[in-house]
Simulated assay, not measured.
Amino acid sequence: MENVKVVYILLFDESGKQVLMVKNKGGHGSYYTLPGGRVEKGETLQEAAIRETKEETGIDIAIEGIIFVNEAFIENVKQHSIFITFKGKRIGGDLVLSRPDEIEEIVWMDVASAEKFIHIPAKLEGLFSQQILVPYFNRGEVAHKY
């Protein structure tokens, strides 16, 4: 079974009431997720999260910390996937649909609607209001100081 690391970014708008979501094209229909994707060889988790967000949405982000980690055994593709979800902050860029072959749309979705698509252990509103973040360490050095 292959081990796969996948990163996602939870990014709120300025009001804190909407979450950035992408609508992916899938073999069994389209589905919404947070921006993100597979970590490439030689890439840190942080680098992957920043790259995937830029590639999928056109937005530049800074990482604020890890919100949660979960995993799944995906038997049909023989993968053990580890999902790391970061909280990010928008620092620039404009929304751009640069991968129309993979992504149908990019939307700011209200929190209640987004929660239906994100498999997380808590409500987004709680995560945002409590500001609970796990420090992220990059190759033994502190990547972010709190």
Rank of each mutant, 00 (worst) to 15 (best):
G88W: 03
E75I: 01
I63Q: 04
A72D: 11
W108C: 01
I82H: 07
I74K: 09
E75W: 08
F73V: 13
G65A: 00
E71H: 14
I118H: 03
E125V: 12
E102K: 12
L97G: 06
M109I: 07
S81I: 15
I118W: 01
F83T: 08
H119E: 02
K116F: 00
L95T: 05
K89L: 12
L124N: 07
K116D: 00
E104Y: 02
D101C: 00
S81M: 14
F73A: 10
V77M: 11
R99A: 06
E64F: 08
F86W: 05
E71K: 11
I82E: 07
G88H: 06
N76P: 12
G65F: 04
T85N: 08
I67K: 08
N70P: 00
H119Q: 10
S98A: 14
P121C: 10
F73Y: 15
D101H: 14
D94C: 05
I91P: 04
S98F: 00
K123T: 11
E102Q: 11
E125I: 12
A114H: 03
E71W: 09
D94M: 10
G65V: 03
E102W: 04
E115A: 05
R90K: 15
S113W: 00
A112H: 06
E104Q: 10
F86Q: 07
I118Q: 03
F73H: 13
G65M: 06
I67P: 04
E71P: 00
A122F: 15
F83W: 09
V96L: 12
P121D: 06
A72L: 06
E75Y: 12
A114K: 03
L95H: 06
I106S: 00
E102L: 12
I103L: 02
I74T: 09
I82K: 11
K78A: 09
K87T: 06
I84C: 09
I67V: 15
I120L: 11
I82T: 14
I63N: 01
S81K: 15
F73K: 14
H119C: 03
